[in-house]
Design a protein around this nucleic acid. Structure first.
Length: 821
RNA sequence: GCCGCGGUGGUGGAAUUGGUAUACACGCAAGACUUAAAAUCUUGUGACCGCAAGGUCUUGAGGGUUCAAGUCCCUCCCGCGGCACCA
């Protein structure tokens, strides 16, 4: 019988039909429901929850969800108690902007979007437990966001202060540092300006060291760890003070405090610079210079971030008229104001050493200031002719510190300052406190009340949730949120004295909502407390977290920070929320990021009708290594679709046969396949895992009627996490099981290590490292025997005619290399 | 500028960590089936030389280490990502 005749006798693979069928059955029998059986080992498999955008999801969004679903389903088969939840990061600007345009309330549009996306996720066959769903915009959820805020407030970790903050003129709100990219708003790409405003902050800087150090405890991509370390930006240096002299040489009361990481260059200081916002600027500026200084400060303030950055090389500044005294040599240096010194970093003032800092070098050249070389490299490479020499070296022109290495000098000089009581070794961070207030409507109201008599008073916990009022007009009001116009909301009584009082009208950054959502999943309906501790103790921390790299320093840093605070407050018992992190790459199509505005999205719903969800899942897994960006190729999809059809035909065919005699060669291949697939899946090497399954199927096809049912069972089990619908259907066809028996209750197959070993191998025979021959040999035969056999081969003899063998290298079970002249 | 990742056929990509480069798949070509097309199946497919057997070359470029380099070292080129006046 020819192969073709066999294949044609079955029913055709109709993806959509079987997918709908099994999704309904799974829903009915509840395999996606999280078991409360706490005796089993748990596996908490988490996806970064989506923002419910009106555009729905495209296949690019589904890449990461597919990966986590594969792992979740495999864990189920391994007998774990699996928690795989999904929810909605539902507050945020897009819904509000949409409301501004259409008048549709954000709550309405968000609800609608959620139902659309939920349907898409269900159609893709993801195994989410929808009973655990959370929605950050619902009072039942944000009651606890507010409650957390109050706990932080009580400990002084949430506070309000005047600060120079990032302002997006288009979104009309302030932004956290993390939300500014290249001087532009991360959302709308408008140029950011700076404003001095009274704003709410969370004290993330207090956790800087722990946020760095605990990165060593988690299994995260090194890239993300590096990004977080760089963002926190810890540096070690010295802070010291310098007395100030006025124009006429009289000593002032104030001192300038500077921070430097290169105190070894201090004898090269030829001036000092304060940032334009430095508090000493006014008292320090000489009468004769006042006008010039004020003008400069005004100009500096008006610059956008972009303007400041574009002038990177041009260092502007003005002389204040005052002088500072270098404590090391009592030298007087002029004090300047320059906007290349940042107010928010270090002390907002620097000692300038043009010989050994390129920025100072530019400034000194422009303002004709002295350049004194005080560091020499030992090999004489150092020169300051064309710019600063910024490397470490040996000190010169530095009095008693001459001849010391940079490193030694830093130690000695720090000690000298400490002994004199005018300085100390310290460390600084680039990280700033997290600015969480937003002047927008669609967010969590900050639960604070201002009373004329009592001042700033937190809302009582018993009054939570403080519900976001339904208002008609969402238009931003500039420095105030639209809530300021909702009189009923604003007017309240002071919880302490009962007098008339006003509410805070800013809302919270949506990243606050998402900084703790993974904790709420374990107990989403609890109205008594944020969650039951017992449940947290069982499920947390999460075992796997899958999502995009774009949150490397935003959400992921904030979530770690929240865990640490909550640990300190005794709310949870762990500090790192995500044990293993996986970042999927982005999907491109026609060379561009997949997005509705580019018109290059592949709509999952249409795709499901044409090929089925299993094909999409398999293609996403097969197209490239999962951490890499990948180009979606419409033509490439057909390959995995053919593969699924092949599997279908193979099994349909087998149903008609019923061979019971195992074939040893297939048996070996089967065990090898189980091993490779099981290992690859754990290493997230989904693409090679599928290649391996394809090879297995290709081989099975050639063996045709010699297959046993068991050969196919293994295939279906291995395929189950990847293409769950097809596998479930074929499993039932093969085993004749009732509907409520699911393949996901079956055990993930084991392999027998003894059975995967090949008894013979193909030995590679090289002469002078070039492959000249191959030979089938039994494994583990002695080197002597192999050599003898090889040298007796006609082909080899020919190659070695008139040549002298110098050396023979033998690698057991792999190759032999004959080195000859 | 600093930090990180990458560069392999026409395309997506594989390569047990130094041991047969190009697995698997797409595409393409030829053939089978068909009135025809699609689908499916079979065969071939890195480049060059050759009727063939076979040979030579090939992992961004150039050097080096080694019996052996896609893999290790040095220099350089290109692409992507992060940070960016952080003293």
């Amino acid at each position: 019988m020819s192969k073709k005749e066999n294949i044609s006798n079955g029913v055709k693979y109709e993806a959509q039909k079987i997918e709908k069928k099994w999704q309904a059955i799974w829903n009915k029998i509840g395999i996606n429901k999280t078991s409360e059986d706490n005796k089993k080992s748990k596996f908490y498999c988490l996806d970064m929850f989506p923002y419910p955008s009106g555009e729905g999801l495209h296949v690019g969004h589904m890449r990461g969800y597919t990966y986590s679903d594969v792992i979740a389903r495999k864990r189920l088969m391994e007998g774990y108690n699996v928690l795989h939840p999904m929810g909605w990061d539902a507050f945020g600007l897009p819904a509000e902007n949409y409301a501004l345009k259409t008048g549709v309330h954000p709550r309405i549009s968000t609800e609608k979007n959620i139902s659309i996306i939920k349907e898409q996720l269900k159609n893709a066959g993801y195994l989410y437990d929808w009973q655990k769903e959370v929605n950050t915009s619902q009072p039942e959820y944000y009651k606890w966001t507010q409650w957390l805020f109050l706990q932080f407030y009580k400990k002084g970790l949430a506070y309000k202060k005047m600060a120079l903050v990032n302002w997006c003129p288009s979104c009309q709100t302030v932004l956290a540092n993390e939300q500014v990219k290249d001087g532009k708003c991360e959302r709308c790409c408008s140029e950011i300006t700076k404003k001095e405003l009274n704003q709410w902050f969370l004290k993330i800087t207090q956790y800087a060291d722990r946020l760095i150090e605990d990165l060593d405890l988690v299994d995260w991509p090194e890239k993300v760890k590096i990004m977080q370390r760089n963002w926190i930006g810890r540096s070690y240096g010295v802070e010291f003070e310098m007395p100030i002299l006025d124009e006429k040489g009289g000593q002032k009361e104030e001192v300038i405090r500077v921070y430097t990481t290169r105190v070894d260059t201090v004898f090269g200081m030829t001036y000092a610079v304060l940032s334009p916002e430095h508090p000493l600027v006014e008292s320090l500026t000489a009468e004769s210079r006042k006008k010039e200084v004020e003008e400069y400060i005004k100009q500096a303030k008006e610059k956008t971030e972009i303007e400041r950055m574009s002038e990177e090389k041009e260092k502007t500044g003005v002389f204040t008229g005052a002088y500072a005294l270098n404590p090391f040599n009592q030298k007087q240096v002029p004090v300047y104001i320059g906007d290349y010194v940042l107010a928010e970093y270090g002390t907002g003032a620097i000692m300038a050493v043009p010989a050994h800092d390129q920025r100072d070098y530019f400034f000194a050249e422009k303002h004709s200031l002295e350049i004194i070389e005080v560091i020499k490299s030992e090999d004489g490479r150092s020169t300051i002719e064309n710019g600063a020499f910024e490397e470490d070296g040996v000190l010169i022109e530095s009095e008693k510190f001459n001849g010391l290495s940079s490193e030694r000098a830093q130690e000695e000089m720090t000690k000298w300052l400490e002994d004199k009581g005018i300085g100390f070794g310290t460390k600084k961070y680039k990280l700033r406190d997290w600015l969480i207030s937003r002047q927008r409507y669609w967010g969590v109201p900050i639960p604070i009340i201002y009373c004329e008599h009592c001042g700033e008073i937190p809302v009582l916990e018993s009054d939570l949730p403080l519900v976001l009022p339904e208002i008609e007009d969402f238009k931003p009001l500039g420095e105030k949120s639209p809530l300021a116009k909702a009189e009923k909301f604003v007017k309240t009584k002071c919880p302490k004295c009962g007098a008339e009082a006003k509410r805070e009208t800013d809302t919270m950054d949506t990243f606050v909502d998402s900084a703790w959502y993974y904790l709420r999943y374990v107990d989403p309906k609890n109205s008594e407390e944020i969650f039951e501790k017992k449940k947290i103790k069982y499920w947390l921390p999460t075992d796997l977290y899958v999502g995009g790299i774009e949150h490397a320093v935003l959400h992921l840093l904030y979530a770690r920070f929240f865990s640490k605070i909550m640990f300190d407050l005794g709310i949870i018992e762990f500090e790192e929320p995500f044990l293993k992190l996986f970042n999927q790459g982005m999907i491109y199509r026609n060379g561009e990021k997949m997005s509705k505005s580019k018109g290059n999205v592949v709509n999952p719903n249409e795709f499901f009708i044409k090929y089925g969800a299993d094909t999409m899942r398999l293609y996403e897994l097969f197209m490239s290594p999962p951490e890499q960006d990948a180009e979606w190729q419409d033509r490439g999809v057909i390959g995995v679709y053919r593969f699924l059809n092949k599997v279908w035909d193979l099994v349909s065919q087998q149903l008609a046969t019923n061979n019971q005699r195992p074939n040893l060669e297939i048996e070996k291949l089967r065990h090898q396949t189980i091993k490779k697939v099981s290992e690859d899946i754990e290493k997230f090497k989904f693409n090679t895992m599928i290649a391996c399954l394809m090879e297995y199927v290709n081989k099975l096809t050639t063996y045709n009627l010699q297959l046993t049912t068991h050969d196919l069972e293994i295939l279906i089990l291995l395929l189950a996490p990847l293409a769950p619908h097809l596998s479930e259907e074929l499993w039932h066809q093969l085993k004749g099981l009732p509907e409520e028996k699911t393949i996901f209750e079956e055990k993930w197959p084991d392999y027998n290590p003894d059975l995967i070993i090949d008894e013979t191998i193909e030995l590679i025979i090289q002469i002078n490292s070039k492959v000249r021959d191959k030979m089938e040999i039994k494994i583990n035969i002695s080197e002597e025997e192999v050599k003898k056999m090889v040298l007796e081969r006609e082909k080899i003899k020919k190659w070695l005619e008139n040549r002298e063998i110098k050396k023979i290298i033998y690698i057991n079970n792999r190759l032999i290399n004959i080195v000859a002249n």
